[in-house]
């Protein structure tokens, strides 16, 4: 099987690009960290990659709402190649700020094609945490049964990863939108408590609707999530490794391994 090339997108203020690259490398991919300007000028072609990760950070300072300006940038400068990449079924993972970018760009949940047409109003967003604070803490994530997401295979029990964000509360324009997300299998991951059931704060660190931590597109090849599986790939990254039985690897690695395997199989 070939080693899939993974494009890790860099942009002003993106800062977990190295972390994402490490995760992709450990998962068997060949990551390259590429600045958005190089894609925009045509120096590098998105189509030459098998997988795309939009990492965490504070793109453009998150000043006009988290991820907003990079979303505008992405759609304006790279809208068409990105659409083709997704339509080809290649895997895309947006983590934290990358998730915010994908949502604000309209790529997720992907109920209609991304657009800058004001008439097409977004129906899902990520906004200020219920606590109104940036918080960094470890959470448990459970895959949602029946989700279309292609990267959750083999997750038998809740996985532990950190979150680090101030605007991660998923909310919708209308209760019917939540029903649509559920009915179409677009809810991928939920925050759960120690018992594995969806739980309130701080297990759900931001007050997300329905404890939603991650969603996917109808094709299942685009996943966005607020938590950081890329910071949970090595045993010593776990916060209780010094008191628990040794782990072979971090819980979050499985998501990248699934995505890389999926990319390799395309």
């Amino acid at each position: 099987m070939s080693v899939p090339k993974v494009l890790i997108l860099r942009a002003p203020g993106i800062n977990r690009d190295r972390d994402a690259a490490l995760a992709c490398q450990l998962a068997g991919g060949a990551p390259e960290r590429i600045h958005i300007n190089r894609l925009a000028t045509g120096a590098v072609r998105l189509a030459d990659y098998a997988m795309l990760v939009i990492p965490g950070g504070f793109s453009y300072g998150d000043h006009l709402g988290a991820g907003k300006l990079l979303a505008v940038d992405l759609i304006h400068r790279l809208g068409e190649p990105l659409q083709r990449f997704i339509a080809d079924g290649r895997p895309v993972i947006g983590i934290c700020n990358g998730f915010q970018v994908l949502v604000k760009a309209g790529v997720l949940p992907g109920l209609h094609p991304p657009s800058t047409d004001p008439a097409v109003a977004p129906r899902v967003t990520l906004t200020d945490n219920e606590s109104a604070r940036f918080e960094c803490r470890w959470v448990r994530l459970a895959p949602v049964a029946g989700s279309r997401c292609r990267f959750l295979e083999g997750i038998e029990r809740p996985i532990e990863t950190p979150v680090a964000h101030g605007e991660g509360r998923l909310t919708v324009d209308h209760p019917a939108t939540l029903e649509t997300l559920r009915a179409r299998g677009l809810v991928a991951l939920r925050y759960v408590g120690e018992d594995g059931a969806p739980a309130g704060y701080p297990a759900n660190p931001n007050g997300s609707l329905d404890a939603i931590a991650g969603i996917c597109n109808p094709q299942g090849n685009v996943l966005g999530l607020m938590p950081h599986p890329e910071n949970a790939v090595l045993p010593q990254q776990h916060p209780r490794w010094s008191r628990e039985p040794p782990r072979a690897e971090g819980d979050g690695l499985i998501i990248f391994r699934n995505a890389v395997r999926y990319a390799a199989a395309l």
Partner: peptide
């Protein structure tokens, strides 16, 4: 401390808060 990101870069192997409930 929870409002500071202490996880970014993935290198923080002993974190500011530790124990059963961290």
């Amino acid at each position: 401390v929870r409002t500071y990101d202490h996880e970014v870069r993935g290198a923080t192997v002993i974190k500011p808060f530790v124990g059963v409930a961290l």
